[in-house]
């Protein structure tokens, strides 16, 4: 990236609308001709990170394909809030079929394009964690193992939020949902259950797997762009806080995403052909409490009797940090880091 040399890190690559960058280096969102693939007027909740992530993903994919994009969407919040007849918030060619089959429908779209020699048309499938890791698992896995030319994006809010916040296979341990209530001796979602889909995707040895959050939208954008530069099956897993399901304030979605990353709760990485190739290091480590406390679904962890569960959540984050190497070898303070970065620019 050919950044103009300026002394404020706030105007570096992390900022959305950086008018100081060359056109080519700007975020799609910063450009006057941004696609606005998911337009205003949809019915997402205030603070819905899924809507934010989906717009960035879609705009980037539209931009990367020159608009030659077909989208298959699983049933779920994203589908419901965007396409209540006779309205649609989607600008790209978009189809919704069922809850469990977005990946298969996408395979069909890609097959139709291939059969008619339209290799210029690309296909994206998307769904929530329920539609991906649970009911859609077979379809997603089938698409992966065939290495179909599809980018599948999972927006993971850790539960069935559309149906009223029930537990999914991606609900984190201890989290309160309507089907893992705060009751009994082990409140919330059970420990020792659940699955992390990116690793399952990696086990398929598909060309590209990545995770991202809405706390670093330029990173999300870069990963979509990378994914669209590759053919074959690709998987992008985006953590998307859900104010309704998490019991968090609508203005906290970005902060919670950042805390998830900085606490080690949610590892951000890239993998190619099953091998980990890049990891986003923790810049400023925070304790899991910073991630958990603002969420009502974890409120019981901070009441008497919640200590053990809190410790287990913390241990899981530490395990992530070890497994993915999320910390620099020599942790730096913010001041040290800024000084080093400024030095590097000179």
């Amino acid at each position: 990236m050919t950044a103009v040399s300026i002394p404020f890190m706030q105007t570096g690559t992390l900022v959305v609308g950086n008018r100081l960058l060359d056109d080519d280096d700007r975020s799609v969102q910063a450009r006057a001709d941004r696609p606005s693939s998911l337009t205003k007027g949809h019915r997402a909740c205030q603070g819905c990170a899924e809507a934010l992530a989906a717009r960035w993903v879609m705009d980037t994919a539209v931009d990367a394909t020159g608009g030659k994009l077909m989208v298959a969407n699983a049933t779920g919040c994203l589908e419901v809030f965007s396409t209540l007849y006779p309205e649609s918030a989607w600008k790209p060619a978009w189809i919704h079929s069922l809850f469990a089959n977005a990946a298969s429908v996408a395979t069909g779209l890609a097959a139709a394009n291939a059969a008619r020699g339209r290799s210029d048309i690309r296909v994206l499938a998307q769904g929530g964690d329920g539609g991906t890791v649970d009911i859609g698992m077979a379809s997603v896995s089938g698409m992966f193992e065939r290495n179909d030319d599809v980018l599948y994006v999972c927006y993971d809010n850790g539960g069935y939020m559309n149906t009223g916040v029930q537990r999914s296979g991606s609900t984190p341990p201890a989290a309160r949902t309507a089907t893992t209530p705060i009751a009994g001796t082990r409140p919330g979602a059970p420990f020792g259950q659940g699955k992390f889909m990116p690793r399952i995707a990696m086990a398929h040895e598909i060309p590209y797997v990545a995770t991202a959050t809405v706390a670093d939208l330029r990173d999300l954008e870069a990963k979509v762009r990378t994914a669209m530069s590759i053919h074959g099956a690709r998987y992008l897993h985006v953590l998307v806080p859900c104010p309704l399901g998490w019991g968090s304030a609508s203005h906290q979605s970005i902060a919670l995403s950042r805390a998830a990353v900085q606490s080690g709760t949610f590892p951000v990485f890239e993998a190619r052909a099953g091998e980990l190739t890049a990891v986003t290091k923790i810049r400023e480590r925070v304790d899991v409490e910073e991630y958990l406390r603002p969420q009502q679904r974890f409120a019981h962890l901070f009441k008497p009797g919640g200590e053990d569960a809190l410790a287990r959540v913390r241990a899981a984050a530490e395990a992530n940090i070890r497994r993915y190497g999320l910390l620099d070898d020599e942790p730096r303070s913010r001041v040290q880091r800024q000084a080093q970065e400024q030095e590097a620019r000179r």
């Binding site: 298959a72 189809i95 079929s97 069922l98 089959n101 298969s104 429908v105 996408a106 395979t107 069909g108 779209l109 890609a110 097959a111 139709a112 059969a115 379809s139």
Partner: peptide, 8 residues
Amino acid sequence: SVSIGSSA
């Protein structure tokens, strides 16, 4: 489901 996609 693949048939749905390709037909669509």
